[in-house]
């Protein structure tokens, strides 16, 4: 079974990179261009996992996670935060918002895929 990933990032380049990496690994990918779009898409996307950027217009990545965790739909979905920082403060912030884990940009396709496989049980 191929897991469905919702990837939220305002950078077209990163969205493309994620899509390519994940689709090559056999996942189905839906992308969203910012936080609000991400939460919208999440409502109907039936995602098995969400990857979200932090710094985005309209709603940031933490806002996305909080919306997901406090919503009625699929609130326990694993959510990975995509970030350029690896500082403890960021991780704490992500954790507090309800993030499952974090991926540091630039990401390595293989480890990204292995993390996602683990978190989606595929």
């Amino acid at each position: 079974m191929s897991a469905h990933i919702l990837a939220i990032d305002d950078s077209r380049t990163i969205r493309t990179l994620l899509t390519v990496a994940l689709e090559n690994a056999g996942f189905t990918v839906t992308t969203a261009v910012d936080g609000v779009d991400g939460v919208d898409k999440f409502q109907d996307a039936q995602a098995d996992l969400v990857i979200t950027d932090v710094n985005m217009p309209n709603k940031d990545g933490f806002g996305v996670i909080e919306d997901i965790r406090s919503g009625d739909v699929n609130r326990a979905v694993p959510v990975l935060v995509l970030t350029t920082e690896s500082g403890a403060a960021l991780k704490e912030r992500a954790r507090k918002a309800g993030a499952t884990g974090w991926i540091v940009k630039p990401f390595d396709d293989a480890s990204l895929v292995s993390v996602i496989k683990r978190l989606t049980g595929t």
């Binding site: 950078s11 380049t13 990163i14 990179l17 950027d53 710094n55 350029t84 940009k105 630039p106 990401f107």
Partner: peptide, 8 residues
């Protein structure tokens, strides 16, 4: 965003 994607 430039930084993030450039890193890739």
């Amino acid at each position: 965003s430039i930084k993030g994607a450039a890193g890739a």
